[in-house]
Design a protein around this nucleic acid. Structure first.
Lengths: 346, 346
DNA sequence: TCCCGGGCTGACAACGTTGTCTAGGCTCTA
DNA sequence: TAGAGCCTAGACAACGTTGTCAGCCCGGGA
């Protein structure tokens, strides 16, 4: 414990470096570098000696030093809301696959829907000198990223638009999707339709509400304050909102749920009811088809969002710096499974 | 376009460095470093001048250089199977939270259940000099990590044990969980019980099969080759397996599903059947309670697995290097929702 | 025999930061 | 007023790698 194996090739507790490998192989530092990087111009015999030394010492190149020297990290950052959310898993995975195809690693962090945390995370990633950044915004002011973008950090926003700055953005057609979903309910005879959504400061929530309103207006239906409820998506709040709009003298006969978490809670509430209430939810979810009745949804393709964003990002990294920022909108798809086709009860 | 703003404070296209900030503020390099790191010993006036220069130039410290100098990256790596799998989302998030509490970032990658890719990823993370590594093994030989561990990379394996090396491991009680689940079916009168699981080379799959066999044996029940099916968890394979054991002269009256993906497919198969078949699945999943009947499961706590592993890792990083590797096993929990309590039909 | 060219190889600086050490100016006390 | 001591500030080396450049050796041609 007192006497450690110090001073043979490398200091105890420290990793061997190319210098150590070079010393052991009896060659120059640069030759080791050449072998490690598979550069040409090394005789087979020298290469073998170096390889042996690498094996013997358990050498592994220090990428921090490499990055410092080369300027590129071959890694990109992903700032999302919550890795545990089933919507972001596939999105994240899609980004990772594209990154992998470009030889880059993915560093990610969850903002937990907190703008300060988003900023902290994004800037920490910039300090690591990620080559690019994919951001699912929690806040609505991204001017803090301007110096970074100017300095060459390719940045793409996904799922929600950037605030106060111009940048590439990949979105689902939240407005159109919600409008289609509500129109679907209207087509099945509903006139009193509730909307339960996320907090209005969140772009997707606002857009979906706008879609709901557009569909109601298109159909010449009145709107009732009591039919719209916005707020956090925790089960308690959503349950209360649903129960409120389902009671009273003129209860809604159908509900449009603003996202997957809301939908699930609404399904639970409706399961406890005796009369049928129609439901369409935004976002698809596993097993939606197995419930009784199957839950009709507006599906968005999370993987496609991630893939599109990441591809856009690497296109910029591969030279298209001066292309103007673009806003890409992906279509949504109505999947009818039964719950949206129930006729109005009562 | 030809004449760029070169040579004022920093080269065009490159980020400003502390040197640039120092020049602009008219102070020494080290003073900038002090300000950036909030060290003491700088007069308020000097600090203000430096801060102004930082703002003006949009300076952000280069953490690569910092890491090179300091030796610690304040980041840990997570190698898992598939970020898009609903089981790994919460696990990953839990690891991230612990990392965040220790001021570290999380770099992660999916192995896609491919041992070579797992190794490639893990070693790439080591080259980045992550301080520690959380690994959900895809392969069964991890000797390739020995030099890294020896060099000080704290490593913890989760969900499945390390192969061929001694290392900290955090597992669920797969054997006990499966045994309890099958015993639950037996207690409700079943004698012909099927087992559909993942590939036997995967540790969890093997353990769960062992649990199934133990429960059958404990109850003195015979075992039939035709009741056990192991293989990939894609829907086609699982569907075929389920249909096979549900047909013939002596069909099973209950099925134990080896993981969440299998369970979901089995639920689909059973939904198409006229007679009731009992089911218990390993892994809980959202909405299991809303299906008809509710799906009984053996639940493991993915977040607890991740949290426990990450805490173990940081305890090592915080000085407990010489503690012997430990194997921690977390209990599972039977959640009865109806599908496991169906009596044998026919 | 000398010179030239090409293939290998290594010395050295640089990337941007932090730790160490020293210098200079100030205050405080005798 | 001189000396001690503290506080602020900057010069410099080092972290481990890669790019540049120069040197060596060997073979071939004149």
């Amino acid at each position: 414990m007192a006497e450690t194996a110090r001073g043979t090739e490398s200091r105890y507790g420290n990793r061997p470096t190319m210098k150590d490998v070079a010393a052991r192989a009896g060659v120059g530092l640069k030759t080791v570098s050449r072998v490690v990087n598979g550069e040409s111009g090394v005789t087979p015999d020298t290469e073998r000696r170096v390889q042996e030394a690498i094996e013997a010492l358990g050498f592994r190149r220090n990428d921090s030093a490499r990055v410092l020297r080369k300027g590129r990290t071959a890694s990109i950052g992903l700032v999302l809301e919550d890795l545990a959310d089933p919507f972001y898993g596939p999105l994240s995975r899609a980004v990772e696959e594209v990154a992998r195809a470009h030889g880059a690693l993915l560093i990610n962090g969850s903002s937990a829907e907190d703008p300060d945390r988003e900023q902290e995370l994004a800037l920490a990633l910039c300090a690591r000198r990620v080559d690019g950044l994919v951001v699912i915004p929690a806040g609505d002011d991204h001017r803090y990223l301007e110096p970074e973008i100017k300095a060459g950090v390719a940045t793409v926003f996904v799922d929600r638009p950037a605030g106060q700055i111009e940048a590439d953005t990949v979105l689902s057609d939240n407005f159109g999707g919600a409008r289609d979903g509500v129109a679907h309910l209207i087509a099945h005879g509903h006139r009193r339709i509730g909307f339960i959504g996320d907090q209005p400061r969140i772009h997707t929530a606002a857009e979906r509400l706008r879609g709901y309103r557009a569909a109601m207006e298109d159909a010449g239906l009145p709107e009732d304050e009591a039919w719209v409820s916005l707020g956090t998506t925790d089960a308690g709040r959503v349950r209360a909102a649903a129960e409120a709009m389902l009671s009273g003298p003129e209860p809604v006969t159908a509900i449009f749920a603003g996202n997957n978490r809301v939908t699930v809670t609404v399904v639970r509430v409706l399961a406890g009811l005796s009369r049928p209430v129609a439901l369409v939810g935004f976002d698809d979810f596993e097993l939606a088809d197995l419930l009784q009745p199957g839950v009709s949804v507006i599906a968005q393709d999370a993987a496609a969002l991630g893939r599109t964003a990441a591809e856009r990002l690497f296109r910029r990294l591969d030279g298209a710096q001066d292309v103007a920022p673009e806003r890409i909108e992906l279509a949504t798809r109505l999947i009818a499974r039964g719950s949206g086709e129930l006729p109005p009860a009562g």
